[in-house]
Design a protein around this nucleic acid. Structure first.
Lengths: 141, 141
DNA sequence: TTTTATTGTAACCGTTTCGATTACAACGCC
DNA sequence: GGCGTTGTAATCGAAACGGTTACAATAAAA
């Protein structure tokens, strides 16, 4: 199964805040029109990014700002902020038969490999800071 | 979102075939009782592994066998056999606004990083052959 | 103070995916 | 022919997602 689009929407959201924050107030409606999804989806993601300490959102008056230094947070931080993958990446069948030698040991055999695979993914995501993203974006617009 | 348990069930299935194939005929019912899921789930996974050329399944008489050399297929092969992740790992919002400079470039900016992250995951999975798994399992049972 | 714009959140919907389950035709062996 | 097994269709309930409506809470402007 695919990882939900919340991650790429969050990236798009942060790129919008970065790009337009000097020109205008960045509301959920504004971001929603760039991402092309419902504003409530954006508000939920803004909430997650806020909880992660990456942005702050002005209630009432409106507008979102990035409060973390661009070089100090990575794609992994953003991913973990919006995707409740605190658990494991790989789902596991719940009740292998303990009376079977294989069922009894399937976790012992596999867990290490699954953990390593997830770590490889996360490590790669953590190599890219949001500053890298802004520089990349700057070349294009 | 989590990757479905099909992958770990497929691993468990192959470990069962490897462990018990000299003692008995390995039917979907037998595997199902070790994994503790419905036999139809196992048959569907056996079908995927068969399509991938990893096993063969005897229709009628019953029984599954591994036909690929243990050292020549990896966790990645098994993963790709059962998880229809031929597409991309990361879902993407479908219609970013082309009139917005960010919406117009979000794919250009992100695709490379997402591809690299997925490649890191797949590369790690491809480092472990099924032979490694059998050796690991052999130490435990 | 009233109005206006915005956020935060609850509630509900339709779609999709997953594993569970039933059912049964196709198949191969005894 | 009888039996056990596979392959597969069909259906189900649960869970996750994005979409959407609605509205109280909030802050600033009028």
């Amino acid at each position: 199964m695919q990882i939900s689009s919340r991650f790429t929407i969050a990236m798009h959201t942060l790129m919008c805040i970065y790009t337009f924050n000097k020109e205008q107030k960045i509301t959920s409606d504004f971001i929603a029109s760039s991402v092309n999804v419902n504003p409530v989806i954006i508000r939920r993601i803004l909430g997650s990014l806020k909880d992660a300490g990456i942005i702050e959102v002005a209630r009432g008056s409106g507008g979102a700002k990035i409060i973390k230094d661009y070089a100090t947070f990575t794609l992994l931080d953003i991913f973990q902020a919006v995707d409740s993958l605190e658990e494991k990446l790989f789902g596991f069948h719940e009740n292998p038969n303990p009376k079977c030698p294989v069922g009894r040991n399937v976790h012992n055999v596999l867990d290490g490999y699954l953990t390593s695979a997830q770590a490889a993914l996360e490590s790669e995501l953590s190599k890219t800071t949001f500053k890298d993203i802004t520089e990349n974006l700057g070349k294009l617009i």
